[in-house]
């Protein structure tokens, strides 16, 4: 159980893993996430389900090495197992059957979060366009995979090393200014990016969904750590989300909450690197 059956280095520091977990694979739906714990002393971290194969019992996750947990995970190999793998958690993505045209916007690690949704909508014959953005060319991945499922794929990089130089929101603005309209826009990525997208789409009144990734412990509605303000209500991202109406999300509050443990996480990662001889 929880055995790593597939491991691929997609771009520097970003890994794709297939985890053998028939029970999660059987129930998984686009939009849901898992909570995993790598070692017995490890923390529980949420990760989006990038894709799943119910027949083979495999759940795919994609992660970037940003701290101790992801660092340890990246050193495991095919045949190794991780301590715990729980899911699928959160509410699945629900689409409005009347919607026909979609624009997906993914920044960096948001790419895996759109993949299974895009695939599902494509199979239903919907019209899909995608904007993918990253810091640099090496941060853009899954381009070929996504291209199969959409009519247009736009790429932006901050440094201009690939696609259009600038931000995903530059492309979004151009598309909308040129008269493009969509029934639904779905944005996943850094909180600042999702906030910027919503600021634009609000003006056009286009329904916009976002998928949030706040700090979580249990992921089953027990601890309340992932609470976010949606409209005037406090919601728990783990049981009410992670997908919410972007117009209602308090992004500033979310950003502050997500930064709370940053210093301790850096400390833990630094110690880990020293221990394994990577130093600074």
């Amino acid at each position: 159980m929880n055995e790593i059956v597939i491991k691929q280095n997609i771009v520097p520091n970003v890994w794709l893993m297939g985890i053998y977990s028939p029970q999660v694979a059987k129930k998984a739906k686009p939009g849901q996430f898992v909570i995993l714990r790598v070692t017995e002393t490890g923390e529980r971290i949420p990760l989006t389900i990038a894709d799943f194969d119910s027949d083979k019992g495999i759940v795919f996750i994609i992660f970037q090495v940003v701290g101790k947990t992801t660092s340890i995970l990246s050193t495991l190999n095919i045949g190794d197992s991780i301590a715990d793998f729980v899911g699928p958690l959160g509410m699945p993505y629900e689409q409005d059957s009347n919607d026909k045209s979609y624009l997906f916007i993914a920044g960096g690690l948001g790419i895996p979060a759109i993949y299974s949704k895009v695939k599902m909508l494509h199979s239903q014959g919907k019209d899909i366009e995608i904007i993918v953005g990253g810091r640099s060319k090496e941060n853009i991945f899954f381009e070929e995979e996504l291209r199969k499922y959409c009519s247009s794929l736009y790429i932006s990089t901050n440094d201009g090393s690939y696609g259009q130089k600038g931000l995903v929101t530059d492309i979004l603005t151009q598309l909308l200014e040129n008269g493009k309209r969509y029934d639904e826009i779905f944005a996943v990525g850094p909180v600042l990016m999702m906030k910027a997208v919503v600021d634009i789409t609000k003006k056009y009144g286009i329904k916009t969904l976002v998928s949030l990734n706040p700090i979580m412990v249990d992921g089953t509605g027990m601890c309340g750590g992932c609470r976010v303000k949606i409209g005037n209500e406090i919601k728990f991202a783990c049981v009410d989300g992670p997908i919410f109406n972007g117009f209602e999300v308090d992004f500033d509050g979310l950003m502050k909450r997500n930064s709370y443990y940053q210093d301790l996480e850096n400390l833990s990662y630094k110690e880990h690197k020293c221990k394994i001889g990577l130093g600074e």
């Binding site: 412990v217 027990m222 601890c223 609470r227 909450r257």
Partner: peptide, 16 residues
């Protein structure tokens, strides 16, 4: 102000 950092539910605090 309940979303401010530094406010835990007892569940979260004790679970951690």
């Amino acid at each position: 102000g309940e979303l401010l950092n530094g406010i835990y539910s007892a569940n979260e605090f004790l679970t951690r």
